[in-house]
């Protein structure tokens, strides 16, 4: 049953992602992106990470997509529609991509057969940690404290960098 749902969600994610990158209308692309994000959130729910799913919906489908729409509305994107969206090298690119997908797909498919299944996280352990939010919080501020802090610097650089490059006069 869980497997069935996984395949459904995976199909939704992949399908909408393909639709997203092939749309010529930016607003349509963003709407397809929303569906991708919702698919990812469903995967989180399947993994019983409800909090992460809620954050995914709130931040990505809520915040990020609205920002995207703002940018599309504010910036004049008229020229984009004139650009050839199919690259001149699309045929070799497609063939190479297919080759890569088959190769990696084969290796992952065969390889996954004899990988030991992940140990079942027992309900008791999760409950002992105090549920979803607490578990995530504990993990972030203990085991992953350093990457968490470095990630905050990463966001700072991204922000300052974007402002610096976008501003006309510094």
């Amino acid at each position: 049953m869980e497997l069935l749902f996984f395949y459904i969600f995976a199909a939704v994610i992949l399908g909408s992602a393909v639709m997203m990158v092939t749309r010529r209308n930016m607003v349509h692309a963003v709407v397809w992106m929303v569906i991708t994000f919702i698919g990812v959130a469903s995967l989180y729910i399947l993994l019983e990470a409800e909090f992460l799913a809620a954050v995914q919906i709130l931040v990505y489908t809520g915040g990020i997509v609205v920002l995207f729409l703002f940018v599309i509305m504010l910036v004049n994107l008229g020229d984009i529609y004139q650009v050839e969206w199919l690259h001149r090298q699309w045929l070799p690119a497609l063939l190479l991509a297919l080759l890569l997908v088959t190769e990696i797909g084969f290796m992952v498919w065969v390889g996954a057969q004899d990988v030991p299944a992940a140990p079942e996280q027992s309900e008791a352990i999760l409950r002992g940690l105090g549920g979803n939010v607490e578990t995530l919080g504990m993990a972030l501020y203990t085991d992953f404290l350093l990457p968490f802090e470095v990630a905050s610097m990463l966001l700072l650089v991204a922000m300052i960098g974007a402002i610096y490059l976008a501003k006309k006069r510094v």
């Binding site: 992953f144 470095v150 990463l154 650089v157 991204a158 960098g161």
Partner: peptide, 17 residues
Amino acid sequence: FISLFVGLELQALSVYV
């Protein structure tokens, strides 16, 4: 790998700018 990747990205992002 987690801290390694985050450090790598911090370096890369700064260098792009």
